[in-house]
C-alpha cells in the first residue's frame, strides 16, 4: 500500500479527488472552493491601510485560512512520508530545452537553478520568483479567482464568466511559456 502511495499518482485519481473538494466544502458548511481569496484575507487582516477593498470582516472568512493551512500541512506530510526517490520524469524535448538555459537539476519538483535562495539574488531568479509571484497575486484578484475559484468551482457551476477567465488563464500561460519565458530563462 505504501509503495503505491509513494509513486506519482495518476491524473484521474488526482482530478477526481480535487473535483470532490467542491461538494465537500459545500456540504461541510456552504463554502465555495477558492484559494486566491486568502491572499486578500491576509491583506485585510494584516495591512488593510485605507484601501476600501480590504475593509471587511476577514474573520468571517477564516475557514479558508484553515483550508490553506491544511494544504501546507498536506505538503509536509507528503514530502516527509510519501516521497518518491526517483527523479521527476520530464518530457525529453523539455529536458533538452531547459538544458539550453542551464536548468538540469530534476531531483525535485522545482529546479534548484531557479528556486533557491542563491538564485533569488540573480536577475533571472528575481524575475521568476518575485515577478512571477506578483503577477499571480495581482492577476488572480483582478480576475476574481484562480484555477480553483474559476476553473474548478466556477466551471462546475456552469458560469460563463469563469469560462472566460479560464480561457484567459490558459492563453496567458501559453504566451508566457512559449514566447516570453525563453527570453527570461536565457538571462
Amino acid at each position: 500500500m505504501m509503495e503505491i502511495l509513494r509513486q506519482p499518482w495518476s491524473w484521474y485519481l488526482a482530478g477526481g479527488l480535487i473535483g470532490l473538494i467542491v461538494p465537500a466544502l459545500l456540504l461541510l458548511g456552504n463554502k465555495h472552493f477558492g484559494i486566491s481569496a486568502n491572499l486578500r484575507h491576509v491583506c485585510a487582516a494584516c495591512f488593510p491601510g485605507k484601501v476600501q477593498f480590504f475593509q471587511y470582516d476577514w474573520k468571517k472568512e477564516q475557514w479558508n485560512l484553515f483550508f490553506v493551512a491544511g494544504i501546507l500541512l498536506g505538503g509536509i506530510i507528503a514530502a516527509q512520508l510519501l516521497t518518491d526517490p526517483q527523479p521527476v520524469v520530464v518530457h525529453p524535448a523539455l529536458v533538452k530545452e531547459l538544458q539550453g538555459y542551464g536548468i538540469i537539476d530534476r531531483s525535485d519538483l522545482l529546479p534548484a537553478e531557479i528556486f533557491s535562495w542563491k538564485a533569488l539574488f540573480t536577475v533571472r531568479g528575481f524575475i521568476m520568483l518575485v515577478g512571477g509571484g506578483f503577477l499571480v497575486g495581482f492577476g488572480t484578484r483582478y480576475a476574481g479567482g484562480c484555477t480553483s475559484g474559476h476553473a474548478i468551482m466556477g466551471l462546475s457551476d456552469l458560469q460563463v464568466p469563469s469560462l472566460i477567465a479560464t480561457v484567459s488563464f490558459m492563453a496567458g500561460g501559453f504566451i508566457m511559456a512559449n514566447l516570453l519565458l525563453p527570453l527570461i530563462l536565457r538571462l
Binding site: 524575475i127 503577477l135 488563464f169 496567458g172 500561460g173 508566457m176
Partner: peptide, 13 residues
C-alpha cells in the same frame, strides 16, 4: 485582463 496577467505568472512560478 486579470486572467491574462495571472496566466503570465503561472508558468513562471
Amino acid at each position: 485582463i486579470g486572467g491574462l496577467i495571472f496566466g503570465f505568472g503561472w508558468p513562471m512560478t
